[in-house]
Amino acid sequence: MSTIASNLRRCVSLKAFGGLGNNIQTASYHANVIDHYENPRNVGSLDKKDKNVGTGLVGAPACGDVMKLQIKVDKNGKIIDAKFKTFGCGSAIASSSLATEWVKGKTIDEALKLKNTDIAKELSLPPVKLHCSMLAEDAIKAALSDYRIKQQSTKKD
């Protein structure tokens, strides 16, 4: 709870820069962000050592956010589970939460097509927060590539 309070503060202050000619600076996050932020989906971890699990760990140096996203893939190349853990602002948390929801049930190739702009659109992120959705896209890509590398090395064995 404490982290939520401080994160919210952090974002409120960032939001102030996003106000487009609006004199009243309010925390006007889109309902979708608040929803994912207050009830994040799929928070947690999967077994990193499992060969069917791909782990993506990415960070945003400009804001000090760190995001871990994991996927579990079945024999048919379908993503059956996804988990995330993000330490960062509300938009970063919401972006990764949404990303895990979206990749579940998709094939690896479908998941690769997921674009940060789709996430940003769904969450109505302001321009200053676009990099948060970018981080989520990077995390998915990193997780998928980690999975591929793991699979290739097991094939060799």
Binding site: S6, C63, F87
Partner: peptide
Amino acid sequence: KYYTSIDNQIQA
């Protein structure tokens, strides 16, 4: 930046 962000969490 990363450690400062951890510091903020700790202070909170």
